[in-house]
Simulated assay, not measured.
Amino acid sequence: MTADGLQFHRAVEDMEIWSTSSDGFSFVITYESPVGPGFRGRPGYVASWRPIHHSSGAIKIGGSPFNTFAEAEEACNTMLKYLTKQN
């Protein structure tokens, strides 16, 4: 993890999907909306995580969907701090 927290990058050029990984965990933020291209759902940014080295599904971070990307990013940083304290 950098001093500024997780560094997300756009994972898919034509869709609103951002990803990053740190300390054995993968994080993804997607934008959902009821209409238009991309993921369907309540409008907002959905944050999720999963362990990199386990074949398990992603776990949605509580509070999703968030109103802004920054809120979703902050939730991912908070989850990483929690997860790394558990190990």
Rank of each mutant, 00 (worst) to 15 (best):
M1L: 12
M1S: 15
T2P: 03
A3L: 08
A3T: 11
D4H: 11
G5K: 07
Q7M: 10
Q7T: 10
Q7K: 10
Q7Y: 07
Q7L: 09
R10P: 00
A11L: 10
A11D: 07
V12Q: 14
E13F: 04
D14Y: 05
E16A: 06
E16G: 06
E16S: 07
E16D: 13
I17W: 04
I17R: 08
W18A: 00
W18L: 00
S19D: 12
T20L: 06
T20F: 03
T20Y: 02
S22G: 10
S22M: 06
D23V: 01
G24D: 02
F25A: 00
F25W: 14
F25V: 06
F25I: 01
S26W: 04
F27S: 07
F27Y: 14
F27W: 01
V28Q: 11
I29L: 07
T30L: 09
Y31Q: 05
Y31A: 01
Y31W: 03
E32G: 06
S33M: 00
S33F: 05
P34S: 13
P34H: 01
V35Y: 08
V35H: 02
V35F: 13
V35G: 04
V35N: 07
V35M: 08
P37I: 05
P37F: 03
P37G: 05
G38I: 11
F39S: 14
F39V: 15
R40Q: 14
G41P: 05
G41Y: 02
G41H: 03
R42Y: 00
R42S: 11
R42D: 03
P43A: 12
P43K: 14
G44E: 04
Y45A: 07
Y45V: 07
Y45Q: 01
Y45N: 01
Y45H: 11
V46R: 15
V46F: 01
S48V: 08
S48F: 05
S48Y: 04
W49P: 11
R50Y: 04
P51S: 06
I52D: 15
I52G: 07
H53G: 12
H53F: 13
H54S: 06
H54K: 12
H54M: 06
S55L: 10
S55F: 06
S55A: 07
S56H: 05
S56R: 13
G57I: 09
A58N: 03
I59A: 11
K60P: 02
K60I: 14
K60Y: 01
I61W: 03
I61V: 08
I61G: 02
G62Y: 10
G63F: 02
G63Q: 11
G63C: 10
S64R: 03
P65H: 04
P65K: 05
F66H: 15
F66P: 02
T68H: 05
T68Q: 00
F69K: 04
F69D: 03
E71Q: 15
A72W: 02
A72R: 00
A72M: 11
E73H: 15
E73R: 08
E74F: 05
E74L: 15
E74K: 10
A75Y: 06
C76M: 06
C76W: 01
C76Y: 06
N77Q: 09
N77A: 05
T78M: 11
T78N: 10
M79T: 13
L80H: 10
L80D: 14
Y82F: 09
Y82P: 01
Y82D: 13
Y82V: 15
T84D: 01
K85P: 00
K85H: 10
K85C: 02
Q86M: 15
Q86N: 14
Q86K: 14
Q86L: 15
N87P: 02
N87Y: 09
